[in-house]
Design a protein around this nucleic acid. Structure first.
Lengths: 339, 339
DNA sequence: CTGTTAGCGCGTTCAC
DNA sequence: GTGAACGCGCTAACAG
């Protein structure tokens, strides 16, 4: 790939054994199960390790035990707090289980599938976020006997021997929308593209359900992407009169915040003129005025569960048929019209 | 560590060779340098690989080539955008260089040094953030012939064969402080503990230097930690009259934002009653009103450079004696008294 | 409690 | 253009 010359030869289990005057088996034991070695020889070995600055070669161990003791995690990006929290939860639980985590960020790569195949070469299992990886590659990995868990992939991701883990979206979306309607809003817009992610799709489903329950016809979703500038652009169109709305249910907080701020800067009053709500409960949501009403997901728990399940799958568990769905919680602040 | 049973035997280079009717050497060639193999046999091998769902074992390759082709990255945590950006830059460059990145988060671990030693077992080199890892452990890793680069570790981290990478802090701090003083502020407080991180120490140095340049005596730093609630607490003490100040230079944006918001909620006018500035230019900084004046660091570049240098060190470069220092930039918004 | 030895799967000379 | 054979460093029986 890159380097020409090999690593300069460091100490090995052999040099340590020689120096301590024992066999390599004993050195190995001192490292793996110190208690089975007599105190005296153990100390001699430890001294030798110290003097030679011995660092065991993980690859050699992995080869011998036929385990990488590492989990792969594929995330689309790391913007905003969502993915960071997911990663933290994953890493935390993985570490508790004695597994390293090898991280792969999809958005900066030319060829994600190649990178994932390469990754699968050095881990015991893979956690992939939603649709960052092609179904074909996932199934290749699966056929290569590596467990895969999908995070926030929706039902579509299940099957193929892949386990699915996600947060509850539809019913919280319904609850949130009902809350907005209960504030007396008549013209509620869903801002975000259901086709862009299964999370968004589920949220839109809940949005529609809430309207149906009140025998109201939901407006068609405003299909825009997730980022700040997408929100700004939408706000412009709204101000220009392209849409009429007295409430906006945005697919996530970044979107909601950029829309809300932009409307306020243009002289609109939130929530009086228009209510704005979002998803994720990012830090900014509690700093803006009014505070942003949103839905908090147990993101770190998603990560933890992914690591946990992956570990069990590597250990030989059969994949669960049913997806794992974690509960979410409404966070009411001022932007929806609440006092 | 955990798992009892080994991975079920998947396809190996041997089974592929057998199936394709060639030797393992040929299979290896097809994977490493396809062009040296004749078209016909190459295709037979590729077919066999496909049919058997062959996934090479990274550990075996690593053992043979004496390279992990992986970099370790040790970060204290992943809260806020700072570390995420650093990680993104690091991962991006590492991937370009064909290296995997193994991530270790220090704050969730019981025994960080143990975890780091364990990590050093499976990577070719280590990038560690500031003082997440004890000097002793770093030097052990170094003596084990693994390159180490320190990010945001200040000058103290240099030496020991370790390369140091950080952002310029002192002179931007001086510039920022001078800017605040130029707005006519008389009683400026530095909020943050210089002993907590070398970044903060350097910022405080700049703060002091700006005062000295005007022949003013800097107030002693308010020694509090970095998090939101630390800021809130400080704001309470300020409101209670424990401190007097017409400007606050906060060690980072999280601190600045929580202080500013809390003061505003208590009826204070920012910047009229008190100016507030910070560091990092987090997303929230441009959403609050007034916008937060802050210093932008090339955080992703820090990460990229760390990955780059690490790679060269692994390749045999001699460690640079001088630390790498990347430039920063003032971002003026309203909270300092501008506009 | 300790030593001997046979792999683990792959890269790589060196012949052919 | 291809194959045979050795070595990478470590773990895990098995013997003693």
């Amino acid at each position: 790939m890159s380097s020409t010359r090999p690593t300069p030869p460091g100490a090995t289990i052999y040099s340590v054994a020689e120096r301590a005057g024992v066999s390599i088996a004993t050195v190995s034991r001192v490292i793996q199960r110190p208690e089975v070695v007599s105190g005296a020889t153990r100390q001699r070995v430890l001294d030798a390790i110290d003097e030679l600055h011995y660092v065991p070669l993980g690859a050699a161990r992995s080869l011998a035990v036929r385990h990488h003791e590492a989990h792969g995690l594929v995330l689309p990006e790391l913007a905003g707090p969502y993915f960071a929290e997911l990663l933290v939860g994953f890493e935390e639980r993985a570490a508790e289980l004695g597994q390293s985590v090898v991280l792969l960020l999809a958005d900066t790569k030319r060829d994600v599938d190649r990178a994932v195949r390469q990754l699968s070469t050095r881990v015991d299992g893979l956690a992939v976020f939603a649709s960052t990886v092609s179904a074909e590659t996932v199934s290749r990995v699966r056929q290569g006997r590596k467990p895969v868990v999908t995070v926030a992939g929706g039902v579509a991701a299940a099957g193929l021997g892949t386990e699915s883990i996600s947060a509850e979206n539809a019913s919280s979306a319904r609850e949130l929308t009902e809350h907005v309607l209960a504030h007396g809003r008549r013209r509620v817009l869903f801002v975000g593209d259901p086709d862009l992610s299964s999370d968004t799709a589920a949220r839109h489903d809940g949005f529609v359900a809430a309207h149906r329950a009140r025998r109201r016809r939901p407006a068609p979703p405003v299909r825009i992407a997730f980022r700040e500038n997408d929100g700004t652009e939408f706000a412009e169109r709204l101000l220009a009169g392209e849409f009429t709305a007295d409430a906006l249910v945005c697919a996530n907080d970044e979107l909601a915040l950029s829309v809300m701020t932009h409307l306020q800067d243009a002289g609109r009053d939130v929530p009086r003129d228009v209510a704005v709500v979002g998803w994720d409960d990012v830090m900014t949501a509690r700093y803006v005025r009014p505070g942003l009403t949103t839905v908090r997901q147990p993101v770190a728990d998603l990560g933890r569960l992914a690591a946990e399940r992956l570990h069990h799958l590597v250990d030989g568990d059969d994949p669960a048929d049913e997806p794992w769905v974690l509960p979410t919680r409404l966070v009411l602040r001022g932007s929806c019209g609440c006092g």
